[in-house]
């Protein structure tokens, strides 16, 4: 089952580049958008991430950082990210494979990949919104933006 709102987001420590790891706890005090996707290079994922790449300004205006995450390796992420000119990190949930996806409840055991799933995590590391999309459908950014708006308005 996909983790639901008001659940503490499980921490992770994953490669974002060949020589740099990122922990969720590094982002304490910021909002984080965690975007799980099945695979680098596959058509729908690329469209989805290309869309988010153009939406980074709006995410940052709302005080949120975007992290992409899949079971692909750090070297695959590097090539994919350079090819698509992404301006946000891609995390390698590679060893043990899919361990983080399993913790978030969105691992696809049949395909050996993460499902397409979104989490908005608040400044204290609590999941405030989550969404499991059909694997073949690009969920867009409207759900994320609405969740961030609700978080930001709730505090004003």
């Amino acid at each position: 089952m996909i983790l639901t709102p008001n659940t503490p987001a499980p921490d992770f420590n994953l490669y974002a580049t060949p020589d740099q790891r990122l922990k969720l706890s590094d982002f304490k005090g910021k909002k984080v958008i965690l975007s799980f996707y099945p695979a680098d290079w596959s058509p729908v994922c690329s469209d989805q991430l290309a869309l988010y790449n153009e939406t980074l300004n709006m995410f940052r205006k709302a005080g949120a950082e975007l992290l992409g995450i899949s079971v692909d390796s750090k070297w695959c992420h590097l090539a994919f990210s350079q090819d698509r000119k992404f301006h946000f990190p891609l995390l390698a949930d590679f060893e043990p494979k899919g361990a983080v996806a399993k913790q978030y409840g969105i691992y696809n055991n049949d395909g050996g990949e993460a499902h397409r799933a979104l989490f908005v995590i608040d400044e204290d590391g609590i999941i405030q919104w989550s969404y499991l999309s059909p694997d073949g459908i690009n969920p867009g950014a409207d759900g994320i933006l609405d969740a961030l708006d609700q978080l930001n308005n709730g505090k004003n």
Binding site: L51, M58, G140, A141, D142
Partner: peptide, 12 residues
């Protein structure tokens, strides 16, 4: 235009 589209669920 772009922001309004995003918020309306334009995904491509």
């Amino acid at each position: 235009d772009f922001e309004g589209g995003l918020r309306s669920g334009v995904n491509g």
